[in-house]
Design a binder for these strands. Structure first.
Lengths: 229, 229
DNA sequence: GCAAAAGTGTTACCCTTACACCCATGA
DNA sequence: TCATGGGTGTAAGGGTAACACTTTTGC
């Protein structure tokens, strides 16, 4: 009676390289059909007994070896079928990871990190998915301190600032930024200093998870968008 | 090889009754299996040759007779299958319509408008979908003047205010509200007055579509959320 | 000493909020 | 005239944006 479809799960994997201070995207060069030789998102198919979330976890774990990663459903896409003769839909997920804490991934297939503005063209509607994921990521940084998923456990204020600048594609005032973040009470200054980036050395911070959980309930604004010039 | 699923499209249909000043939800009492006798969202199945958006349009048109309705994808749900023996997923859409401009719907099945706080329990995961749709609707009222889809072509400031109060479940200051809306330039005051709601009569407004399109590009804030008391 | 990054402080301005007051009109 | 809803104005407060200045330390 009703038509049946196979359900692809496509994963947009964002990573922040806090040394290069660049937001990156993990893509694979397909060594299988269809679209062999092209770049694409990590992908897999939904199994009958699992939920979307479970499938996204499984696919990400299988392809990168990572578990316990932040994953969020982005959108469901219909239309362009990866296999010409089967009816197919896709559900896109995006994931956030810290690059340097997970160096030994990128194993399966030919996976490679790309900076956003030099990424290759992707197959199917994957470019559309990435564009939507970036917008979602921006929105999330306002409502939630999602950026902490992308940073190492201990980080400097500069790294946090650069992360936000990368996500938004614009610069923020360094002084106002740290003031805002500090008044929110969502990060904790440690006694350690990082001396890699400056001669003076800058304090390391860690994320205040308890404070965040408390604030999340009432809803808050993390960083406001700069006014258009 | 890969498992196959049928794809349900579930429609959350919001309507604003500008006479009763109530936000309502259109639900159907199912006269078919599964879940016969229970209340549920309008639903249908995706066909092989159509997109999600097309399917949502088709299902809404078939069940209500309405076309050209604002529809937006909400979320994709896996798990609870309407038919026990088939693997099924659902993609939820929400629609916005003005109740009194479309009086002759509610025909197919036993459709009925419910106020949000007195709606019946729904089958499957439809309650979860409705909850998410309300949150989405709130967010949209901030970013976009989506509320105008729910009002008649000509409306009073009071009706617009009441609509926002219904969506947010809280009261706004009448004077600040109209000031804010006016400065945005997104509505146009007409020379007509409506005398139904008051003795003095209140001006009718219409939506300034051109201004909106212009503003949409740069991104704007329509109405800000009141601070939690 | 000098350069470079980090830390702290100050001010102006805009937007929101919380109000008060007047107007028009049917009963 | 009075009650009711409608229209307009003003002042205080909070938060952001735009700045300047000092500190630390390797070279």
């Amino acid at each position: 009676m009703t038509d049946h479809f196979n359900v692809a799960i496509d994963c947009i994997i964002f990573g922040f390289d806090h040394l290069e201070e660049k937001l990156k995207l993990l893509l694979i060069k397909r060594d299988f059909q269809p679209g062999k030789g092209s770049w694409s998102l990590m992908t897999g198919f939904l199994k009958a007994e699992e939920s979307f979330d479970e499938a996204a976890d499984r696919i990400l774990a299988f392809q990168t070896g990572l578990s316990n990663i932040y994953l969020e459903q982005l959108h469901a896409y219909s239309g362009k079928s990866p296999h010409p003769n089967t009816k197919s839909i896709a559900v896109a997920y995006y994931a956030l990871i810290n690059i340097h804490e997970h160096k030994n991934l990128s194993t399966k297939h030919s996976a490679k990190w790309f900076e956003l503005d030099t990424r290759p063209k992707l197959i199917f509607d994957h470019d559309e998915m990435v564009a939507k994921a970036i917008l979602r990521l921006r929105r999330r940084t306002i409502t939630r301190p999602i950026g902490f998923r992308l940073l190492p456990k201990k980080f400097t204020m500069r790294q946090l600032l650069r992360l936000y600048e990368e996500i938004w594609g614009q610069n923020f005032d360094r002084r106002n930024f740290s003031k805002k973040v500090n008044t929110l009470g969502i990060i904790i200054k440690l006694d350690e200093k990082d001396r890699n980036s400056s001669k003076k050395g800058s304090y390391l911070f860690k994320f205040n998870k308890e404070k965040f959980i408390e604030m999340e309930k009432s809803g808050f604004t993390f960083i406001s968008k700069k006014k258009p010039a």
